[in-house]
């Protein structure tokens, strides 16, 4: 926590080197998350760049008392993704067609199942299951109470469980 605060103080003072280290450490994780949210690797790259640019230009949005720097980053990213969806004219956050070179990166049955869920459920499950964000961090990112995080996570898991089992091919035994 102290290290995170120190890092952020350096970023706030305008130290490009500190921000670059932050970008290199968090960028890959954020990109993975955004690929699930916008469903397109080029768009995810664009939104990630916009996210870091916003944080660099306006570093005062983060206050350590309100949560972690990581959660703040993902929260900003989610808003940037929402803006991307808005500009694109989509209201439901449904994924768009993925270029072939990107599909191979995330192709999996569970990935396909995840893409069938609404954006908020995709966000929740990815951040919890893959990024290991705590309930408090999820509450910060999604701007909802912790109790709501718990109930929405349950709903998202149930949704994904049903989609996954409905689409998963049955394995033949003994072959």
């Amino acid at each position: 926590m102290a290290e995170e605060y120190e890092l952020w103080e350096r970023i706030r003072r305008g130290e490009a080197q500190a921000f670059d280290a932050f970008y290199r450490e968090m960028g890959p994780q954020l990109l993975g998350y955004l690929r699930q949210i916008v469903g397109n690797c080029q768009a995810a790259e664009d939104v990630m760049q916009e996210t870091f640019t916003q944080m660099w230009r306006s570093p005062n949005g983060f206050t350590p008392e309100r949560g972690t720097l990581r959660a703040y980053l993902f929260g900003v990213a989610r808003k940037c993704a929402a803006e991307w969806w808005r500009k694109r004219g989509s209201v439901d956050g449904s994924p768009i067609e993925e270029p072939a070179e990107c599909k191979n990166e995330i192709a999996s049955l569970v990935g396909d199942a995840l893409q069938r869920l609404p954006e908020e459920q995709r966000s929740l499950l990815w951040l919890r299951e893959v990024e290991g964000q705590s309930y408090a961090e999820l509450a910060q990112i999604l701007e909802i109470p912790v109790g709501t995080v718990r109930s929405r996570l349950f709903s998202a898991r149930e949704e994904l469980r049903m989609v996954w089992y409905a689409t998963r091919p049955v394995k033949k035994e003994g072959t």
Partner: peptide, 21 residues
């Protein structure tokens, strides 16, 4: 989910220059 994420995970990001603010 974590297995699939591991398969698609990148370890680097594009080079960028953060101009001193």
């Amino acid at each position: 989910l974590r297995r699939a994420a591991s398969l698609g995970e990148r370890t680097d990001v594009k080079d960028r220059t953060w101009e001193n603010r």
